[in-house]
Amino acid sequence: MKNYIIKRILLVIPLLLCISFVCFIFISLIPSDPAEVALRIRQTPIITEEAILQVRKELGLNDPFLIRYVKWLINCLKLNFGVSYTNPSRTVLGEISRSLPPTLKLAGMSLFFVITLSIPIGFFSAVFKDSLFDRFIRGMVFTTTAMPPYWINFNVDC
């Protein structure tokens, strides 16, 4: 069992590399120029060719694709995710560390509510199998599972 677990854990590494490479390819295929987008986000009043070339140089977009990927991968392993496009004075790691606690709090609260509701509902559905309650719950689960997520759009300010 120990060897099986080690083998499965080691298989995660090439899988993560493949996924990151495919994502990097897709991001590179986006038709807009990332340097121009960064300038627009920074609300640069006049976007010149020289400004675009300067930002491309800053972001390392002049390098060949594979070199950019390897540099990006090495930086990610060092937890250096670069500078935020929207606010160049902040790092991406700083933005992640600022946003992670509320995200984990929200996910934890969601997990608590799901477990608190699903265990009693599952218990009663098992005890009263094929009853009106059980059929109603199965219908609700089927309906909400089949429903696209954007149909349930709650506008909650956190």
Rank of each mutant, 00 (worst) to 15 (best):
R8N: 10
F136P: 01
D63L: 10
P45G: 06
A38L: 03
S89F: 02
I41V: 13
Y4E: 00
M147Y: 05
T44V: 15
P120G: 05
L61H: 09
V70H: 05
I96H: 03
K57Q: 15
G108V: 05
Q54K: 14
K129C: 04
L104E: 08
L117R: 00
L39K: 07
L104W: 10
N87E: 09
G108R: 11
I46C: 00
N62S: 11
K129F: 15
F113E: 12
S110T: 13
P148R: 07
I30M: 09
I74S: 12
I47A: 00
V22L: 10
P45R: 01
V55D: 00
V55T: 12
N87V: 09
L61Y: 14
C158H: 09
F124K: 08
I121S: 04
E50G: 00
N3Q: 12
P88R: 13
I46D: 14
A35L: 08
R40L: 11
I137P: 03
W72S: 12
L11W: 14
G108M: 07
V83D: 06
I9S: 03
R135N: 10
K78T: 07
Y150I: 08
G108F: 05
I5F: 13
V92T: 14
I52W: 12
R138D: 05
K78C: 02
S131N: 08
S32R: 04
S110E: 05
A107V: 15
F65E: 07
V83R: 10
V114H: 13
W151E: 04
R90Y: 12
L66A: 10
F65L: 09
